[in-house]
Design a protein around this nucleic acid. Structure first.
Lengths: 218, 218
DNA sequence: ATGGACAGCTGTGTATACACTGATGCTGTC
DNA sequence: GACAGCATCAGTGTATACACAGCTGTCCAT
């Protein structure tokens, strides 16, 4: 693995996991020493992070981007647009059997969610497979790329909202509805199911954020 | 101006203006000598270009990305999604007076288009102002960022379709319709006007590309 | 004659040294 | 005492040197 990849992965993880708080300045020498790489690959890593929007390169040094409540609204506004369209396209172009299989798995997901932490990982992996299946089905690299760049920020937000079993069970049902609509080849329904899911997710995140607003900033 | 900025601007211009054909490998030493900068800032420039999708960093060296007819369809599929949503949001949140002024200017645009090359530049600048006004009105940095990254590729395509006065006149009317709908605060209408405009643009580009398919590849 | 292995080369990945810029703090003068 | 100017320094921007990997061409062996 290249040193720049290592630095990129480490920094990205640190930011997404909120170990590096928003506003932190990432001085090149300091970070290169901390991560055990030279300044050159570190700069490449910082460039990639900045291109993704996780950091901003304003003025002196790059700083970790802040994510506020307004940002969450904006983020979900774009997400609704992109993922709604993606679901609709997947319903038109996707393979029905693939999504029927995913739907069945998602309907069984509550068992996984109740099963504790190791099984929980299987659930997240299942949702990831649904995302990947949609990505593949839309056969639009530009749209897929736009969604990928969006998901980085979403993961960051997800860490703010401690997903409880109750919300995850509901989310699984919503995901199953999306898969069902895509399998049925119904674009409007798939888009509607996606919009519903995203709105519920947003409400949950905002509620969690409102009840523990400073958890990660102290 | 930093050397990396200079290299980035030069390479980006070369790619967008089709002076660097798709498939061209951008060897670091070769390009750094050609542009008169060192390898370090050149690598940063290449990284930015790759992040934007103008180049790909597969295997050995970075190569200029190809743009095919399928890519154009995919590109406009995403563009319709993003700009349609943007127009709708602008209609909801934008300042009516601003867009009324833009609409009046756009209705006068046929005079500019007929006026030859210097006046033509004014027309392009006017369309750019409409884009900027929409960007500002939506007040969603993530959506704006997604549209910015998309426009890079659109400029590249625009160079393929030699815009004639006839098409530009029609486009001006379509832009005026978009501005009017936004000024009227009608989101559905603004989105519809945008979708119409983009479909006409796409048809024009594809027609031009079909009649001169190899113009830029010889 | 053909296949494999080794050497050389081309080109990227990384490290480090140097230059320049912006800021901050100290000192001198008004 | 306050402000202006200069010096020092921290930190980024750039260049270059070095290491390593992949490919290619040639030579030797079968």
């Amino acid at each position: 693995m290249r040193a720049s990849d290592k630095a990129y992965a480490a920094l990205r993880e640190d930011i997404v996991e909120w170990r590096l708080a928003p506003g932190t300045v990432l001085a090149e020498v300091e970070q290169s020493e901390r991560l055990g790489v030279s300044r050159t690959p570190l700069r490449e890593a910082l460039g990639r992070l900045t291109a993704e929007g996780l950091t901003t390169a304003g003025g002196r040094g790059v700083v970790v981007t802040d994510i506020s409540l307004e940002d969450i609204d904006e983020l979900f506004e774009l997400r609704e647009t992109l993922e709604g369209k993606a679901a609709a396209l997947a319903a038109r172009r996707g393979d029905a059997a693939t999504f029927e299989r995913l739907q069945r798995e998602l309907l069984d997901a509550p068992g996984l969610i109740a099963g504790g932490k190791p099984a929980l990982h299987d659930y997240y992996e299942l949702v990831g497979r649904l995302d990947a299946a949609i990505d593949a089905a839309i056969s639009n690299s530009y749209l897929a790329q736009a969604m990928r760049s969006l998901r980085v920020h979403l993961v960051r937000i997800r860490r703010l909202a401690a997903d409880d079993a109750c919300r995850l069970t509901a989310a699984a049902a919503e995901h199953a509805a999306i898969a069902e609509a895509i399998a049925a080849g119904n674009p409007k329904l798939a888009e509607a199911a996606t919009v519903i899911h995203l709105h519920r997710s947003l409400s949950h995140v905002k509620a969690a954020h409102a009840s523990h607003p400073k958890e990660h900033h102290g």
